[in-house]
Design a protein around this nucleic acid. Structure first.
Lengths: 191, 191
DNA sequence: GATAAAACGGAGAGTGTCTCCGTATAGATA
DNA sequence: TATCTATACGGAGACACTCTCCGTTTTATC
């Protein structure tokens, strides 16, 4: 039996405002880091501060919302890679993509921290998606015998976040690539 | 010829205040992270805000000062380890110590970021010391044939900072240990 | 068009940052 | 010891950011 939901159709302007805020926020966070002024974002999105805070009660909520689409892309990529590549290659490809997607933004610090169970318990949704992706990749590579059985997928995720976090240096892309390789080599089954 | 420095003996109270501020700052940064209120720190140290800002013009300057003693301890440890352990063991021991010293504090994020050449160019002094330490350890282990010749010490440092950064999760100590081992394994010479 | 639920917006209180400058004092000098 | 002045102190206050509250406006519906 369907639940009675006599709610009327949601207002169009609210939805539009929400999207405009997200758009501006993404730009601002990328430009000036996770401490960008929320009032500035509201102003640039041509809404009042109240509107921004109604949609996103906290800074973290806004960050997560901005960041969610990236997470979804990553989760999708995992599936695709797993279908088209061998276990190790798909893991490596995904790790590199992770660094690319996440590290390039300046949002990282606060967003990622809670991905790995940091102080705040936010971002629960995103966290699950990412964890699911790395779990799948690692378990597949363990089953195929490429990775050590005692490897904790979560450890790898932590390291990856670390790598991403540090990705602000000039040659970060090269460095990240080298580090991903080190991590994978260190995770392989002993010969 | 010595430069004329007819400066009189520095005032004792200034020095005392400086030290008291550092002490309080360390406590506060550890307790509530790098965004602790500077005015609060000043108040608890029983000085005016002006005094705090005269000694440490920016938040970063204060963080670096707090953080400098830890860096010095790390540099010292590198020498000791290198004298008393085999190359790989000394590297591992130092890496674990790094995580211990740095990650346990909540200062990490902003402080470490510039260690690896992040946006700001602060912390120059500390940076040199840490880099010197990891360089020495890695080069020694390369010479002894334990690590791959093409390993970039700086990459390892980046990963290490990453590991530290993520060290806020419950079982961080265990996870860090596992990750350090993965990194070292991945850096060894191919068999 | 009338109605009420939904959403807006911006003034303003609370808090933190950082500066400025009048006041206090430690060390030099005699 | 008394005096002098470079040095340092401190906190009021201007400015910036966060977040809430509530009177006003807009939308979907009938």
């Amino acid at each position: 039996m369907a639940v009675k939901t006599p709610t009327r159709k949601p207002r169009a302007d609210a939805q539009q405002n929400r999207e405009r805020i997200l758009e501006v926020a993404k730009k601002e966070f990328t430009r000036s880091g996770p401490n960008a002024s929320l009032d500035d974002i509201a102003r640039e999105a041509a809404v009042g501060a109240g509107t921004l805070y109604r949609h996103f009660p906290t800074r973290d909520a806004l960050i997560e919302a901005v960041y969610r689409t990236e997470v979804e892309k990553l989760a999708a990529a995992q599936k695709k890679f797993s279908e088209t590549m061998c276990p190790i290659d798909s893991l490596r490809a995904w790790m590199l993509l992770f660094v690319d997607y996440i590290a390039a933004k300046q949002i990282i610090a606060p967003a990622l921290n809670s991905l790995v169970g940091g102080p705040t318990k936010l971002y629960e949704g995103s966290r699950g998606q990412i964890q699911g992706a790395i779990d799948a990749l690692v378990h597949r590579a363990i089953k195929s015998g490429d990775l050590r059985k005692d490897l904790e997928p979560f450890d790898l995720l932590r390291a990856l976040i670390g790598v991403s976090y540090v990705a602000s240096s000039p040659d970060w892309r090269q460095s990240a690539k080298r580090l991903v390789d080190i991590l994978i080599t260190g995770s392989r089954t002993a010969k």
